[in-house]
């Protein structure tokens, strides 16, 4: 299963940068995580992100999900009401299972990232022989 590195409630603002320029917000995407057989499946909501704006990295056991949003505001219009804000997405997990990196499947559709992380075949117990002095 996946453990969150810095536990954060979904939807909270992680950070905002830029004091003078329009601030870019970073949100924690809402996720569903389940295990199906030998595969851990992670679904992350990143609305407003195009498929080329999604970045997934797995370094050792640290899985980083990142989404860069292309802010859109219709030109020549004035904002009447604003109930949600746009921003980038970032969430980091530590995986407790060894993942078969060659078989990771990532798919991005309708603003949802779907990651399939197949567990590596059970590592064979390594026998360490102890030499007698």
């Amino acid at each position: 299963m996946a453990q969150e590195l810095t536990p954060q409630a979904a939807g909270t603002v992680v950070r905002s940068k830029g004091e003078t320029e329009p601030a870019t917000l970073t949100f924690t995407p809402a996720v569903d995580i389940f295990e199906k057989g030998d595969t851990t499946v992670i679904l992350a909501d990143m609305p407003g992100v195009a498929s080329d704006g999604v970045d997934v990295t797995l370094e050792r056991r640290v899985l980083t999900l990142r989404g860069t949003v292309k802010p859109h505001a219709p030109e020549g219009y004035r904002r009447l009401s604003s109930e949600y804000r746009e921003g980038d997405y970032l969430r980091v997990f530590t995986l407790s299972d060894e993942i078969n990196q060659a078989k990771i499947n990532a798919e991005f559709r309708n603003g949802v990232l779907r990651l399939e992380l197949p567990h590596a075949a059970e590592a064979k117990p390594k026998k360490i022989s102890v030499k007698a002095a």
Partner: peptide
């Protein structure tokens, strides 16, 4: 869902985030 609304001269634009739907 939460919506954002913009108004122009004679038109209005509404947007909402609905990830996972088609």
């Amino acid at each position: 869902p939460s919506v954002n609304v913009w108004v122009g001269q004679d038109s209005v634009v509404m947007s909402a985030e609905l990830p996972g739907l088609t």
